[in-house]
Design a protein around this nucleic acid. Structure first.
Lengths: 353, 353
DNA sequence: CTAGGTAATCTAAACGTTTCGAAACTGTCA
DNA sequence: TGACAGTTTCGAAACGTTTAGATTACCTAG
């Protein structure tokens, strides 16, 4: 007979009765939002212990209009980039006293749509999203949201939101440039669909680096997939069975590179002897096995920390009204998966593994 | 002037007024919990669209005593085992219409304590936890919880809860036995502290396999750390600089094996030529680089799915009153990181890499 | 002895739902 | 015409908090 919510858990009213005061006083004591006399303080404290009171956060949220909860959606949590970003974000929010509700959209627009809707229904105080789908669709979902949102990894052209992203073009430019310096002229490029701005930027970096080095762009060398391992596998298969096959492969996404490596292996080829490879997004195992993978590393710590800071600023009203966009630099982690192209290289500079 | 919660979002009352009916009717329509005439249905539908109504899940939860939200805590989300389990669990709950709040305890008892408290305050409908700390401490936290809990990965001796775990003893028995069959007699063992039952079981598997093969247990060959990469590094360092160093290493946890591999490399040793290694918990990159890592794989899919099913059963009252404990079998994924010990083997059976 | 100030506490109305029991219709049949 | 059953709809009380404004108790100063 203690109410029905939370299986009849004791409420403030129980505490109040036990202590012989009103619920207002109990509330005032708990939130110390008003002075309460030492005597009552004591009685309330013991009453709380006696009845085993725990605050009911949902009633509190309803009244206050704040849940101290934020929503986080990412495409795939098993992609090591997202794993790490999720790790730093959850930790940062934990420290700030927030809970985070996590959803994986699996690159699926309608999943994302529904998940964000669910999150909004639950009155989250804010959202961090690594979005999927095209810009317009996302804009529609988001325009109705009344809470702050910060985008990570992927911007949205149609709508102005806080965001922290990578300078994708520069990052792949550097990687492709590095391959070109090693004498590679046929550089395969495995990537995702162009409906995602991030991928368009990476594409631009690829073409710009080629152009800067005077290498002709060959559409046969670019293969698009859906970010999954199997897509990487078939992409690399096609690439490496081309009549004039590439001497290097750049994968614009991490799960796809594991497929690519498997394809290379299944073809009886070796990396780096037969083909150099670089992939986007560093991962913990990159430097423990052979070959040690050359990758472009995103500053995951900074991305997570900054996104959380931005969102918290907005929630607390400490942010300027204009959306802020933070663009971070990637870093090429040069290891051993790339070597100079052996023969027929017209580049004078040579470099051995 | 539309109320304060959710930044003045429209409420049922707004819809009711717009449609010229009472909130009770609107509620009845939305949840279709009572018949409402076609005419009113139409008016309510358009009213909802006109005012842009979205249900307020927290008010609903308060009234209903159910949040359709569950809490999930794991030690480290970057440990690939947990990454995958978290992925499976979030997806399964998503499909069931539940949101999941995720916390990482970082192997820290007081974190876990506080996080579970937070979750309970928020009236989650259930909890899935891969717990940390000793049994007694955990028992105390959990005994006050009024909602169902299912344990994964790690049991708790003091208290009876639903659980899905691995047959850890059998799993490491099989791995050590495999090494012994390859002729290894000095098998280094890198593991965690014994306050965790899971680790005690793995220890038991190690000792049992040794005993079964008539190999003497040498305490110098076991090194305990705190699950982190650096612990694995120093453990392997110590092991491989022993006067009579091991010819094989088994790591009872995944992050520690990357430290171990780095130590092996830094010592100028090679795997598997100089030392065979096996590690607990498979990971996506295990078979793409050299050496391809021999691992013991937990059935992550099944663990996640079963845990979710158990919890949902409890929540819906479809579970027997006695706690259920599901013990799954691991699987040794034999790849190329282990070879037969080259010389001085008294085992007649030999096997080349 | 009382006015007035301060400190402590209380009453009651929200927050946005759900739901029970009652009320208001409709139509049918005696 | 009126009683009755069957639909729809409604009013109002919860769920467990927070908080503004009112009330009480207590002191001090005049």
């Amino acid at each position: 007979m203690k109410g029905v919510g939370r299986s009849g858990a004791p409420t403030m009213l129980d505490v109040a009765r036990e202590a012989g005061v009103s619920v207002a006083t109990v509330s005032a004591f708990i939130n110390n939002t008003a002075r309460v006399s030492p005597g009552t303080t004591g009685r309330i404290e013991t009453a709380i212990r006696r009845v085993g009171y725990q605050r009911n956060a949902v009633a509190r949220s309803l009244k206050l209009g704040k849940t101290h909860t934020i929503g986080l959606t990412v495409p795939h949590i098993t992609n090591p980039f997202f794993t790490e970003v999720v790790a730093v974000i959850t930790q940062a929010f934990d420290r700030a006293g927030y809970a985070v509700m996590l959803f994986c959209t699996d690159e699926n627009l309608s999943n994302q749509d529904e998940q964000i809707r669910l999150l909004l229904d639950r009155m989250v105080d804010g959202l961090i999203v690594a979005r999927v789908g095209d810009d317009e669709a996302f804009g529609n979902i988001v325009r109705t949201a009344k809470v702050p949102i910060v985008l990570i990894d992927r911007l949205c052209d149609g709508i102005d939101l806080d965001a922290v992203v990578l300078d994708n073009k520069a990052a792949v430019f550097e990687a492709i440039e590095y391959l070109a310096r090693l004498g590679h002229k046929r550089i395969g490029y495995i990537t995702g669909e162009t409906d995602i701005a991030t991928m368009r930027e990476r594409d631009a970096g690829y073409r710009a680096a080629l152009a800067a080095r005077g290498i002709a762009f060959d559409p046969l060398l670019v293969r698009r997939g859906d970010f999954h391992e199997k897509d990487g596998y078939s992409a690399a298969m096609q690439l490496m069975t081309l009549p004039d096959r590439p001497t290097a492969i750049f994968s614009a996404n991490n799960p796809m590179v594991v497929g690519a490596m498997k394809a290379i292996r299944d073809l009886g080829l070796r990396c780096p002897e037969d083909v150099s490879v670089i992939c986007f997004d560093d991962f913990p195992f990159a430097d423990v096995f052979q070959p040690q993978m050359t990758t472009v590393r995103q500053p995951v710590e900074a991305i997570g920390e900054q996104a959380v800071a931005m969102l918290l600023d907005r929630i607390n009203g400490n942010a300027p009204t204009d959306p802020r966009r933070l663009t971070l630099r990637g870093r090429l982690m040069i290891r051993s998966s790339c070597v100079a192209v052996p023969a027929a290289s017209s580049e004078p500079q040579s470099q051995s593994a």
